[in-house]
Design a binder for these strands. Structure first.
Length: 1122
RNA sequence: AGAUCCGUAGCUCAGCCUGGUUAGAGCACUACACUGAUAAUGUAGGGGUCAGCAGUUCAAAUCUGCUCGGGUCUACCA
């Protein structure tokens, strides 16, 4: 037996990991883990591509740990798990980073720097931190294939995107429309939601707000209003509508009411003109404009100076009653005439200036009637479209009013030019309305409003042309298929994602940026003809055709080789030709980067131009599993799902795990600003990837937010890895001495001792638990179960109780059984934890396997996951071991209380047994208890009246159901039972209780009886288990105790002297009256324990050591035999 | 504003789905013990209005509703 188990010199996870990493690299362990499963059933995993233009953070480590552990687990379960990596390379963050670096703004692109150069910069920037990413990937033990990653800016990738876009186009799911988007007149550009969410964009501002009065037209529809008003002098009826942006009023086309909101018609006076008026507003908002004491008061006596406005409700009705009522245009000018409105929309059916209905109306602010200008609000636009009230954009892209608006023409709606003499046009509009009896209330209103992060000016919501994917067309199918997806946690799928699907709007694909996938749509100048390109080949033939048809130098740079780069500016230089022979230019839009990532299932394989079968043959589609942060719910999870359903009528993933955020230890979000960002490199270097991974996984469920605390990693390192390490060290120490290499036949379970069968039973139960948890994507449960096993069962019970078996005696059956058992536990545990902590598990596995060669693999990651052996599981055994642990713990606590150390043997323990099962269970573990607590015998007490005091209490679960409300009375009655009653109850197994004059028959199952006390003994109890300890120390016991103390002291001396465990010794003791009997009586025992060949009492020792045994001092010398 | 997750010991978390009468564990703290696993370990102790309020129930940490606090996502609107 030349090969020995390698013994670690100390637990240093980072060092072990470096070593393992090197081995993995040398042996291509990752590639092999896939190759070894060639032909096996695939388990499909998609890597959500990170963007390498930022540094990896600790939050990347958690989601990658989750991905990695699932993939490793599935591999060990026999699946082939290919893991193609990828890089997300397009998009705004990249562009902003480059702009910052170059010190330019969007406007400079094409001026100070050409689009070509700019995009080149972006291309260089996207993989700026690739090295850092590769490093963290390696160090954290994330196995992913980065040799052949998909990169979203590559032509092949973009070509697949084009193919997809064309398919959508052909299906009629890609269309152009206006959408109302945040727009910065100062910067002259639309803003993405990302830009709008920059810190500090939402500012508290005071705006001039106005409640405007829209005069209702009297006709058949509005008759019921005017009837109520009667023939007052001024029979005018006004709708009140509030706005904080008076500049939108010239563009007003409708008034939106809530169909179920209660409205009232109120007779009152205008606070400004003091003319009698009748106004309509939501009933719930009356209090905002009218004082209670003004109701029905003094209309006749009202005069201009009066503070109190008299008012009276004339009628009450629902919003739905108002639908269709017309009103006079508030600010009519040339530019916003009905004729113009209809000609803008090219539709004579457009009918503005009506009351329409919308669900978005609330009664929290304003009047409950919303002034609606479809150009300047998304809700307005939507409802306006539904009612076909047209659209007016009376503000140009610079942020000023257009011509034809009288005195307001060409005035900026906000001070976009930093004009010192700027006068707020909103105020002037309000003044005009006041004068014309069209304003009911004008005031400054404070609210938050988004500002452009670049110009610091308030943004406008502005209609811009954009391309959309008609996701709403397949909404039902998306909802339906979502129900088949296994969401972890479930609530995210049903709640956050489900709601999102229910409220889906069409996907706005357009981005007016530079670095991204160009939308492959070309249009003729008049827009009458357009074409969507679906491949490079199609584009190249279009290039040639256009040159042939249009002649001249059209596309001359692209005739020879075709297009080489599918980005701007090149694609924009291409002119195509329409069927009717007109030139077509590309629409300038880029595609939302989320389309890039949502397309990765297909684009990563350049589908359908290559690898067609991978997708069509369902070999790599859909994914069995994906995992990202919960913030991806409406990002990647959505786009994957949308494209999967839209294009393939299939889910894109079967299981999705959305992990929570990583917060700092105080629960704050990590941010550079706060300086609380955890550097994953430092953490891993210091504590090791395994401890970090284990901590991240076991500390909280993946979907809960994690409060990241370095202290927690230290704890994991010490508690879990330290314990496992110690257990392994213990094993290797002794098996190296004994030469155990698992060469002997596997000893059948029935021939092993109780404790061996117990730990193996627990082990198999553990395997079952872990497998179930992992299958259910609950790694936290799995990890915690292993922790408990290693700590509580394996280390603190099995090894502690079995230590002697390893170091004492010959290498025979029982010892071999112990080795086999402990070995099996270690070998199984490391395979169980391999997915979570890939390094340490592999180190231990390889150390074990190097000696025994039980697995014909190089790495734990090539081994199979353990399978639970149901035959090895013995629930009764596990229960009685628990009983033994509890009993021991109780006895030790008594020893502690009366201050008798464990080395002092005691004679007897009494344990009252409540039934025969309990006695049977206890007697099977009797020896364990006795040796653990150093007691000679255990006596079982059966119900002997007077000796044991018993306690009885109702079994609430059983009785509660039966008794219901009588429970309280019965509970009290049971509590009153005497010791005699309880005995009789136990003997007869039933008891009749008088409750409210009625007999109630109780069975034993209806109550819980426990032993409480044994008068005259030292007792302790836990649950139904009670123990009593005989604490008298006889002379014989005292001597044995002293012998044991003596052994202990000598063992310490051996250790201090640096003797080997196997060295034999001779001992001389200076004669000592008080201990001579103890030592002589137990000489054989002592010699056996301390490996002594002789113990002699001598008159004097020259250079001995002073030791102490139970306060007795004596001098000894220990001599190692040569 | 809506959706969702979370709130249990000083800290990190179990328990909640399926309600049952002394609410657990680890860490930390205190004291004692142990010392052929020792960068360990055992025993004991203090420490809780289970965020708050209300409801359902014989019985609520557990079920329901509301409120408060924290996080995230979406939206930001007259």
């Amino acid at each position: 037996m030349s090969v020995k188990y390698r013994e670690f010199s100390g637990l240093n996870l980072p060092t072990i990991e470096k070593e393992i990493l090197q081995k993995w690299e040398e042996s291509n362990a990752f590639e092999k883990s896939i190759d070894l499963r060639e032909g096996a059933e695939p388990f499909v995993f998609y890597e959500g591509p990170p963007s390498a233009n930022g540094l990896p953070g600790i939050h990347h480590v958690i989601s990658r740990t989750l991905k990695d552990l699932v993939c490793r687990y599935k591999t060990m379960q026999g699946f082939q798990v290919k893991r193609k990596g990828g890089w997300d390379t397009h998009g705004l963050p990249v562009e902003l980073g480059v702009e910052k670096e170059l010190g330019i703004t969007k406007e400079d692109i094409g001026k100070k720097i050409s689009v070509e150069d700019y995009n080149q910069k972006c291309r260089e920037a996207v993989l700026r931190y690739k090295d850092k990413w590769d490093e963290i990937t390696k160090k954290m033990g994330y196995w992913v294939d980065l040799n052949d990653p998909y990169i979203t800016f590559e032509n092949n990738y973009i070509e697949t995107l084009w193919w997809m876009l064309k398919r959508l186009y052909d299906k009629g799911l890609l269309y152009e429309s206006v959408s109302i988007q945040p727009y910065s007149p100062g910067a002259g550009t639309g803003l993405s939601s990302h830009e709008l969410n920059q810190p500090g964009t939402y500012k508290n501002v005071k705006d001039t707000s106005v409640v405007a009065m829209f005069k209702a037209v009297e006709n058949e529809k509005s008759k019921f209003l005017f009837d109520t008003v009667g023939d007052q002098q001024s029979a005018e009826v006004f709708f009140l509508a509030w706005t904080t942006t008076p500049w939108t009023l010239p563009s007003n086309l409708g008034l939106t009411a809530g169909p179920n909101i209660d409205y009232v018609l109120v007779k009152t006076f205008s606070p400004y003109t003091h003319l009698p008026v009748n106004v309509i507003l939501a009933k719930a908002l009356l209090g905002k404009y009218f004082k209670p004491e003004g109701e029905n008061a003094g209309f006749e006596n009202y005069s201009e100076g009066d503070k109190l406005l008299p008012w009276q409700i004339l009628a009450e009705f629902k919003g739905s009653d108002l639908e269709g009522i017309e009103y006079e245009q508030l600010l009519p000018y040339e530019a916003n005439s009905l004729k113009n409105i209809q000609s803008i929309g090219d539709d004579e059916a457009i009918k503005p200036f009506r009351v329409i209905l919308g669900d978005f109306v609330t009664t929290e602010d304003g009047t409950g009637i919303v002034h609606t200008s479809p150009a300047f609000g998304a809700d307005d636009y939507k409802v306006g479209k539904k009612y076909n009230i047209g659209i007016l954009t009376m503000v140009d892209r610079q942020g000023k009013f257009v011509d034809g608006l009288g005195e307001f023409s060409n005035r900026f709606v906000k001070n976009y030019k930093d004009d010192k003499s700027y006068e707020d046009v909103n105020v002037d509009i309000c003044v005009k309305l006041k004068k014309e009896n069209r304003a009911f209330k004008v005031e400054k209103y404070e609210h938050t409003y988004p500002h452009c992060w670049r110009t610091d000016k308030p943004i406008l919501y502005y209609p811009l042309d954009a391309w959309f994917i008609k996701t709403t067309a397949l909404k039902d199918r998306m909802v339906e298929l979502n129900k088949t997806i296994n969401w972890k946690p479930k609530s995210t799928g049903e709640g956050r994602f489900g709601n999102w699907l229910e409220n889906m709007v069409d996907w706005n694909l357009s981005r007016s940026r530079f670095w991204g996938t160009p939308l492959p749509v070309w249009k003729t100048e008049d827009g009458s003809e357009q074409i969507c390109i679906g491949s490079i080949e199609e584009l190249n033939s279009g290039i040639r055709k256009a040159n042939e048809v249009l002649g001249g130098n059209v596309n001359e740079n692209y005739l020879h080789e075709g297009i080489l780069d599918l980005h701007k500016p090149y694609v924009d230089e291409i002119v195509l030709v329409s069927p009717t022979g007109k030139p077509m230019k590309r629409v300038p839009d880029l595609v939302d980067v989320w389309f890039d990532s949502g397309a990765m299932p297909y684009a990563q394989w350049h589908y359908p131009f290559e690898n067609k079968d991978l997708v069509d043959g369902k070999k790599t589609f859909p994914a069995d599993f994906i995992c990202e942060g919960v913030d991806q719910t409406r990002g990647w999870f959505y786009t994957l799902h949308a494209l999967g359903v839209l294009l393939f009528d299939n889910v894109a993933y079967k299981t999705v795990v959305s992990n929570g955020l990583v917060l700092d230890k105080n629960g704050n979000k990590m941010s550079k600003r706060l300086g609380n960002v955890v550097d994953p490199f430092q953490t891993i270097d210091k504590f090791g990837a395994d401890a970090t991974r284990w901590y991240l996984i076991t500390n909280a469920s993946p979907w809960d937010n994690l409060k990241f605390d370095i202290g927690g990693i230290q704890e994991v390192q010490r508690k879990f890895f330290g314990t496992l390490y110690n257990t392994y060290q213990f094993f290797s120490l002794y098996s190296n001495l004994d030469g155990f290499a698992f060469k002997e036949v596997y000893i059948p379970l029935e021939q092993r001792s109780e404790i061996d069968r117990w730990i193996l039973s627990s082990l198999n139960t553990l395997v079952k638990t872990v497998t179930e948890s992992m299958d259910d994507y609950e790694p936290t449960q799995a990890g915690r179960a292993v922790e408990e096993f290693v700590d509580e069962h394996l280390s603190n019970w099995y090894v502690r109780l079995c230590r002697r078996r390893f170091w004492k005696g010959e290498y025979e059956q029982d010892k071999i059984a112990a080795y086999q058992t402990l070995y099996e536990c270690l070998e199984t545990v490391v395979r169980l934890i391999a997915p979570i902590s890939p390094f340490f598990s592999d180190a231990v596995f390889q150390n074990l396997n190097a000696v025994t060669n039980r697995f014909k693999v190089e790495s734990v990651h090539h081994a199979n996951f353990p399978k639970s052996n149901a035959d090895a599981i013995d629930i009764a055994l596990e229960e009685r071991m628990q009983l033994a642990q509890d009993a021991s713990s109780l006895i030790l606590s008594i020893r502690k209380k009366v201050n008798i150390k464990v080395r002092q043997p005691l004679q007897k323990v009494l344990i009252p047994v409540l039934n025969s099962t309990m006695k049977e269970q206890l007697s099977k573990v009797e020896d364990l208890i006795k040796s653990e607590v150093n007691v000679k015998e255990i006596e079982y007490l059966t119900a002997t009246e007077g000796f044991i005091n018993k306690r009885i209490k109702p079994n609430f679960i059983a009785l509660g159901k039966r008794l219901g409300s009588k429970m309280k009375t019965v509970s009290a009655e049971i509590g009153k039972l005497s010791q005699q009653d309880i005995s009789r109850f136990e003997k007869e197994e039933k008891f009749i209780l008088e409750v409210d004059g009625e007999p109630l028959i109780l069975r034993l199952a209806d109550v819980e009886i426990s032993a409480e006390d044994i008068p005259g003994w030292s007792v302790a109890s836990k649950g139904t288990l009670t123990v009593a300890l005989d604490i008298t120390i006889s002379n014989e016991l005292r001597k044995e105790g002293e012998a044991r103390e003596f052994v202990n002291r000598i063992q310490n001396l051996r250790k201090d002297s640096g003797f080997e465990v196997t060295d034999r010794i001779n001992i001389n003791i200076v004669e000592n009256e008080r201990l001579v009997h103890s030592i002589n009586d137990y000489k054989n025992y002592i010699c056996a324990e301390i490996l002594a060949d002789s113990i002699d009492f001598v008159p004097e020792i020259s250079d001995g050591t002073q030791i102490e045994v139970n306060d007795i001092l004596l001098k000894v010398s220990v001599i190692k035999k040569a």
